[in-house]
Amino acid sequence: MIPKISKETTLLDKTEELSGEKIFSCHKCGKCSAGCPVGTLMDVRPHQVIELVQANDWSVLESRTIWLCASCFQCATRCPKDVDLTRVMEALRLLVLRENFDHIRISEISKEELRELPPVALVSNFRKCTG
């Protein structure tokens, strides 16, 4: 989904504002993608996310990638240019969630699963995936 805010600002500006990161500092070494524990499962690889934001391409918000990132901070720790991609991913998720959009439907999680899952899983998931 492309948020309403796209009419008022560019993806690059809004992402930099929310994340506090300088997106053009990236020099595309690819370390983020190489180290990402879920990188191989992503439709857009982490370094490509940066490229799409640089190009103001809102379609990045429709990727599976921004939801698959679980904020493990591996990319942030290894980036030679100090671009915290973890924060960039969070900013992109929030652009969607702040439209009052939930990425997951809480009501669709079965009672059996809810009884088994630890509170820490539910709290973290709902914080990252519901608006």
């Binding site: 009884r115 509170p119 539910l122 709902f126």
Partner: peptide, 15 residues
């Protein structure tokens, strides 16, 4: 009365 009983019926409390 297991600990997860309330959250299993009202999972949104985790928000």
């Amino acid at each position: 009365s297991e600990p997860s009983i309330i959250v299993s019926l009202y999972p949104e409390i985790a928000r």
